[in-house]
Every structure is written in structure tokens, then in C-alpha cells.
Nucleic acid binder design. Structure first.
Length: 454
RNA sequence: GCGGGUGUAGCUCAAUGGUAGAGCGCUAGCCUUCCAAGCUAGCUACGAGGGUUCGAUUCCCUUCACCCGCUCCA
């Protein structure tokens, strides 16, 4: 079992990812993307959007609000199952659900759902319900472990003003099913995609950005007929894997992992796991959700979620194939996959991030061989920056500057020398092969554009 | 929330009851025409509060934060 230390250090040194609230000693499980990291993550999101919206037929993007009517979470089941009354045994440090203890003790005669926390605490005290593990009756007070972050809307702090930060983005796609279908005149099967933040008040420390309380999801919901749903489920498993492979992942570092235990709504579920330094962990999920979500929203909202199929004149609630991937987890996986310590002939080591050129934070670094060439170098910088993210470095030896670019995975370095002044040619050096070729300045844009395509 | 651990420079580490050093990195200058060269100069730290003490980065207490484990995890 490894850990993320090398990636964490590189991240901080080179501007990928910083600890959140760093000057105040941080805040657990929050991280800030720096100047280099934000480019990487944005490029990853753009690549995903390209595959699942731009190049997909019949898929539409949305950007739903983080705040939603609380009834959405009643319908999705989050309100009920995200708020469990928990208490700890002070003796053996195990944690138990107060409602379950009461239900078991009373053999189902008492319904703890109707009790307040105080009533449950009193009940447990009066009936001497003890820890099932160690037998002692020494409990902490009940605390509600709600995985949804809540805040209140308006100036008063009444319970009806309570609103939640969404714990998943999926509901934004479901509640907009009808809006998208009508406005885009979409015909089933079609998809709705979204990239957005979600929030979960999880206790667990997170292994760098692997598990954080705020995270970004990239999701695609495919609405289809029930009798075609398994076909599309398999299709999206393949698409999800192909996308990862196209980003440069090694096939040996990815695997499907089917769920043994399905969630209440799911008909089938499969994850793709990546071999992180901490072991195999979930990177994305493909879930066959049946018509559970739309049916629930129909039930709770009173609005019909059915679709009238123009080909068959049938009216039905579509099935949903959900494909969901964490943008932060993917960024982290890509950093782990790209990280390489390369032994050189002179015995030294260079750290290289072998990003796919399309997602590399900077595409080109401009390196004048000497400082008195900076005027010409600046000219080239201005020219290329109209097309790509370009960085500039004239400090230190040329070798040192190559190393800095290797560490942030810049695929191309352009050096300007005295010949450049005479004939407008530059040396362009490839990050992976370290090969150098001579190019006319006018050829640079085309040459690089071709290489950084996705 | 519980148990354990840790807090000194951007990073990795040191020393010390009399207010701190190194390596790497970074900045500037010199030199230098393609893979972490050299020389010179410079920047930057005892998490916070309180106590003991003539004096605390060092000892004690509290607090804050982080890390590991437990718990939780649609």
C-alpha cells in the first residue's frame, strides 16, 4: 500500500493543488486547485464534455442550481436516509443507531421514527438498553449524522427555511427531464449531462483529494425505453472505459467492479476502479436506475413524468442509465497515472508528468536561451498565447527549465537562440521523447494544434 | 466524536532554558548557445494563548490544525 505523498508534494510545489485555507493551518478534506491544477482539471472537464455532449448524438448539457427545493431530497430519499440518530458507547467506542437499538429491544412494538432524540435517549436509559458489543450502558448523547450540508434561507432560522447543498448532481438532471425534452424537442432515447459541485458531510478523512466534503461530479443520464435499457447499460460501460483509455490510462490500471449489493433503486450497477497508490478504488459508476427517479418525482411533485413516444404512441416513464465520474478523483487518477520518475543516462532522475497533451495544463513553454533574447521570446509568447495556454521561463540553466516543465507536464518547450533572430526558426522539444526539431515560427501553431487534439 | 501521533524556512530535516542552522528550492547579479553546472548576494520559520522562570522554540497546561486508526460511506 502506497500513499499520495509524492503527488501531494509535487502538487504544492508546482501549483497543482494546495491545502484549503493553508495559512490558517488548513481545513480537513478541503483542497484548492492552483494555477496549474485548475488548467488540468478544466481540460479534463472539457475533454469529458466533448465526448459526452459535443460528440454524442442526442445528448444535452445543463448546469443546474446547487440549491433545490427540499422536496427533491424527500423524493430522492436523501432526507430520510441521510439523517441517522447515532450514539457512541463510551466504553468500547463503537457507534450504534439509537432507533435500531430501540426497535430491536422492543421487538418492533415501539416505533422510534415517531420519537425525538430526547425521547429516544430517555427510552434507552429507562429500559437499560446496553451496548450490544460490550454490554455496558454508558452512551454519549444522540447526534444526528446527516450527510447533507444544510443552511437556512432568509433571515429567520425556522425549520421550513432549511435548504440543503445538493449531495449529488443527478437530481438536477431528473427534475429537468421535461424541460430539456420539450425545449430541445428531444426524442427518447436522449441524454442529459452536467458537470457540477456536490457536498457531503462525511466524517472520513480523505486521502488527498480522493474523498472531500466538496467535490465535482461529471454525470450523464441516458433516458431510454425499458426494453432497450440493458443494451444501453452495456454501451455506457464501454463508453466510460473507452473515455478513460483515450486519456492515456493503462488498461492494467483499470477494472470493472460489479456491485454485489444493489441500492434500492438500481437494477444493475458497475464501477470502474483505478489502481491508486492506496489500492483499487472507485473512479466512476454506471448505474441502471430503472424508472425509479422519474417515478418518485412524479409521485412527490404530482407532475406527470411520462413521455409520449411519437413512433409507437405509447406513454411511459423512461428508464435511466446513469454514468457518473468524479472530476476530482479523475484528476487525481490522471496525476497518479502520469507521474513518472525517469532515470537519465547521467544517473540523475527527472520527474515527468506524462499527461495526454490535450489535458496538459500548459501546451508550450517559451524558453529564451539567454536573457538578451527575451524580446523575441515575448513576441512568440504573444503569438502562441492566442491559441494555447503558454508559460514563459528565463531563469536558470536551460536544463533546469526543462525539468520545471517536465514536472508540470508541458508537452512542448520552444527555445529561442541567436539563429532565431536571423531565420525565424526555433527548437521545439518533446516532453516524452526529449527529441528536438527545428521549426519556423509560423509553423508552430499548426504543429502544436495537431499534437494537442483530443 | 473517540484513541494515538505530529506541529521549527516553500520542502526535507537539525540544534538549543540565554530568541535558531543546513541541504534543496526561490529571487537578483555575474557567467553560460539546449537537459537540475559554477560564483556572489539575498528572502523566508519556532501554530496560538496562558503558566513556571531573571529569561521559554525548549518544561507544564489549554487551545487550534493536520496525520493515522475506529466509526460512517447510495
Amino acid at each position: 500500500m502506497g500513499n499520495f505523498d509524492k503527488i501531494v508534494n509535487l502538487s504544492k510545489n508546482r501549483g497543482f493543488i494546495f491545502p484549503g485555507s493553508d495559512i490558517y493551518d488548513g481545513l480537513a478534506n478541503t483542497w484548492d486547485y492552483g494555477p496549474v491544477g485548475v488548467e488540468l482539471k478544466n481540460n479534463i472537464k472539457r475533454a469529458w464534455w466533448k465526448k459526452f455532449v459535443q460528440e454524442a448524438h442526442n445528448s444535452f448539457g445543463i448546469d443546474a442550481d446547487i440549491f433545490m427545493n427540499s422536496k427533491v431530497w424527500d423524493a430522492s430519499g436523501h432526507t430520510a436516509s441521510f439523517s441517522d440518530p447515532k450514539m457512541d458507547c463510551k466504553n468500547c467506542k463503537t457507534r450504534h443507531r439509537a432507533d435500531n437499538l430501540i426497535e430491536e429491544h422492543s421487538k418492533g412494538k415501539v416505533n422510534p421514527d415517531l420519537m425525538t432524540n430526547e425521547e429516544m435517549e430517555n427510552y434507552i436509559k429507562e429500559h437499560h438498553i446496553c451496548c450490544p458489543k460490550c454490554g455496558k450502558c454508558d452512551w454519549t448523547p444522540i447526534r444526528n449524522f446527516n450527510l447533507m450540508f444544510s443552511t437556512s434561507r432568509g433571515v429567520t432560522d425556522e425549520s421550513q427555511n432549511l435548504i440543503y447543498l445538493r449531495p449529488e448532481t443527478a437530481q438536477g438532471e431528473f427534475v429537468n427531464f421535461l424541460n430539456v425534452q420539450r425545449s430541445m424537442r428531444a426524442k427518447v432515447p436522449f441524454g442529459i449531462a452536467q458537470i457540477g459541485k456536490a457536498f457531503r458531510n462525511e466524517v472520513t478523512p480523505g486521502n488527498f483529494t480522493f474523498r472531500t466534503i466538496e467535490f465535482e461530479q461529471m454525470e450523464h443520464q441516458w433516458f431510454c425505453r425499458a426494453d432497450e435499457s440493458m443494451k444501453y447499460y452495456e454501451e455506457y460501460k464501454k463508453k466510460a472505459m473507452d473515455f478513460l483509455l483515450s486519456l492515456g490510462f493503462s488498461a492494467e490500471h483499470l477494472r470493472f467492479h460489479d456491485h454485489d449489493k444493489l441500492a434500492h433503486y438500481a437494477k444493475a450497477a458497475s464501477d470502474i476502479q483505478y489502481l491508486y497508490p492506496i489500492g483499487w478504488e472507485e473512479l466512476n459508476g454506471i448505474h441502471h436506475r430503472g424508472d425509479w427517479d422519474l417515478s418518485r418525482h412524479q409521485e412527490f411533485s404530482g407532475k406527470s413524468m411520462s413521455y409520449l413516444d411519437p413512433y409507437t404512441n405509447e406513454r411511459y416513464i423512461p428508464n435511466v442509465i446513469e454514468y457518473s465520474i468524479g472530476a476530482d478523483r479523475l484528476t487525481l487518477a490522471i496525476m497518479c497515472e502520469a507521474y513518472d520518475e525517469e532515470k537519465l543516462d547521467n544517473g540523475e532522475t527527472r520527474v515527468v508528468m506524462h499527461f495526454h497533451p490535450a489535458i496538459a495544463p500548459y501546451k508550450v513553454a517559451i524558453l529564451p536561451l539567454q536573457k538578451n533574447l527575451s524580446e523575441k521570446a515575448t513576441e512568440i509568447y504573444s503569438k502562441l498565447s492566442k491559441y494555447f495556454m503558454v508559460t514563459y521561463d528565463e531563469a536558470g540553466s536551460i536544463g533546469k527549465r526543462y525539468r520545471r516543465q517536465d514536472e508540470i507536464g508541458t508537452p512542448f518547450c520552444v527555445t529561442i537562440d541567436f539563429e532565431t533572430l536571423d531565420d525565424d526558426t526555433v527548437t521545439i522539444r518533446d516532453r516524452d521523447s526529449m527529441e528536438q526539431i527545428r521549426l519556423k515560427i509560423d509553423e508552430l501553431v499548426n504543429y502544436i494544434s495537431e499534437k494537442v487534439k483530443f
